[in-house]
Write a protein that binds this DNA or RNA. Structure first.
Length: 280
DNA sequence: GGCCAGGCCTCGC
DNA sequence: GCGAGGCATGGC
């Protein structure tokens, strides 16, 4: 069996799985997590002392997963940059020690966050899995011996590419339990299939223009657009405000959090706050 | 069985 | 420009 080991400071896969930014990343047990992304299954085993084993070969790790886990970014330095007087954010950061912002597939992020509006995280995960099962390809799970464990499920499916979803009907999409958002998903498929919007275009646009393009999509408002930018396009200077963040800002910042203090990293701060409020 | 969910769209002002 | 109401389904 081939696997890859790395020493990675500031890396807590279990917290990432529970951070609400990703819907196909699950905790298996105290020292194992698994994720499906980019048409692959990856299991992570924690070996202690910041050492981790990944169920993939070295070149795949460097090519796919290094960027996905945002391993080139210095999160310690980001935590150190927090205003010393902001005790809530400092506490949130130490509580969320090891959470990184994943750079997820753009299309998957678009659809996932369109689904996410006004739904609980478990139910978002269910719909994303149903869509994958319906339109994605079956994934070959690598043979897993020590230090890995048995995967949670028997079968895994990739999240479908735009092409794979292009034959979808409104009734199909509705059958995945997404409710009234099915119409938004159909529009998104059309936007991408027609070439009106492409992943390359989104990657190349500056923040302001990217935001406008995303807002032009049906079913995408300011919160979802910011989530797509943060989690799908690594625009870590975006600051999505949902009902949880709204609560936090009211309770701890008297209704106003000045995220411009952290240009380029406030999205990461947001993730710490969100995770802290939901999990402490 | 009832309540709420990582909001957005439409309408009325 | 802004606030209120309505919204399909799933999970607890």
């Amino acid at each position: 069996m081939n696997f890859t080991t790395r020493h990675i400071p500031f890396f807590a896969p279990d917290k990432i799985a529970l951070s609400g930014q990703v819907f196909r990343f699950r905790v298996i047990d105290d020292t194992h997590t698994e994720v499906v992304a980019f048409g692959r299954y990856l299991q992570i085993a924690s070996l202690g002392d910041d050492r981790y084993a990944f169920s993939c070969q070295e070149d795949e790790f460097d090519r796919i997963w290094h960027g996905y886990f945002d391993l080139s970014r210095d999160y310690e330095a980001i935590c150190d940059s927090i205003d010393p007087d902001d005790t809530y954010l400092r506490d949130a950061c130490s509580f969320g020690y090891g959470i990184r912002i994943l750079k997820q597939d753009v299309w998957e992020t678009v659809i996932s966050y369109i689904i996410s509006q006004r739904r609980s995280i478990p139910s978002i995960m269910t719909s994303v899995d149903r869509i994958s099962r319906m339109y994605g390809k079956k994934i070959k799970v690598p043979k897993l011996g020590d230090p890995f464990v048995k995967p949670l499920f028997d079968e895994y499916y990739s999240f479908p590419a735009v092409d794979e979803m292009s034959s979808a009907t409104l009734a199909d999409i509705t059958s995945t339990g997404v409710g009234y958002r099915a119409e938004y998903i159909m529009c998104a498929i059309d936007d991408f299939r027609s070439g009106k919007i492409t992943e390359d275009m989104l990657e190349s646009l500056d923040n302001d223009r990217l935001y406008d393009v995303l807002l032009s999509m049906r079913g995408v408002g300011c919160k979802v657009a910011n989530c797509i930018m943060l989690y799908g396009l690594a625009r870590c200077g975006r600051f999505p405000i949902d009902v949880w963040m709204d609560r936090i800002i009211k309770a701890h910042y008297s209704g106003h959090f000045d995220y411009t203090k952290y240009p380029g990293t406030c999205g990461i701060m947001q993730q710490f706050m969100f995770y802290y409020e939901r999990n402490r």
